[in-house]
Design a protein around this nucleic acid. Structure first.
Lengths: 116, 116
DNA sequence: GGAACAGTTTGCTATTTGGCAAACTAAATC
DNA sequence: GATTTAGTTTGCCAAATAGCAAACTGTTCC
């Protein structure tokens, strides 16, 4: 599944892993080299680099190598796209539950009317 | 990776697939039986059911079988958790870029002062 | 009770993943 | 120029995924 249909596939896929989310969290505070990003994790560098490659392929970060240091920075568009999608879903869901609440309220008023 | 460390792992994992996102999208408008949910997709029912099982295992939907019909509904907490995380990341990232903007502005004022 | 319907189970693929260890490249430092 | 440092490549492994087809279970309807 190399090619994602939508950028949402890519964004959510990257974010499904705790290591990768931690990297994003760190990078939201500012750019950092690979070494520093890898430090908090128990895994070896090759394994960690795979996560970085996934993040970059999925468009959530970008990186640039200067000398022997590769500096990574967060790429906010994909994050925003994911957030926007979730926000829209919540909006739709709330619209539904609001209609339900209205309906329940209406039914209750009727019951009271009938009881009077 | 049966057990997720965090509910975010589960939420983002489920959302990484376009079929599953479409199911969520449909369910935000209200509950629906499996048959109706499966209709728009080219794949067979067994493959589709796997997606539903993933969604349910990951806590994004719940379902109940009455007679021979299984009705699914969306489970908003996990979606909210994911949205909250993304929102927080954006907040942090914006704080950073705002600081950067301030810094650039300060530097520019100084250049102008020096030039005068 | 027989047919149609809604969903489920089983068994089979190919691909992707997340990790390891070991060897390697290129830049900085002494 | 030898050594440390930062990152990269290669080859390997076990587990999980996304799909298929075919056979099966239980419900509803005529």
């Amino acid at each position: 599944m190399e090619n994602y249909q939508s950028s949402l596939d890519a964004a959510f896929h990257s974010l499904a892993d705790p290591t990768r989310r931690a990297v994003i969290s760190r990078l939201t505070k500012g750019p950092a080299p690979v070494k520093e990003l890898a430090e908090p994790f128990a895994m070896g560098l090759p394994a960690f680099m795979k996560h970085l490659r996934v993040l970059e392929k999925d468009g959530l970060i970008s990186s640039e190598k200067i000398g022997r240091v590769r500096t990574c920075r967060v790429n906010s568009e994909r994050l925003t796209a994911a957030e926007t999608w979730l926000c829209e879903q919540r909006r739709l869901w709330q619209a539904g539950t609001d209609r339900l609440a209205d309906y329940v309220e209406t039914q209750m008023s009727r019951s009271i009317e009938n009881a009077e």
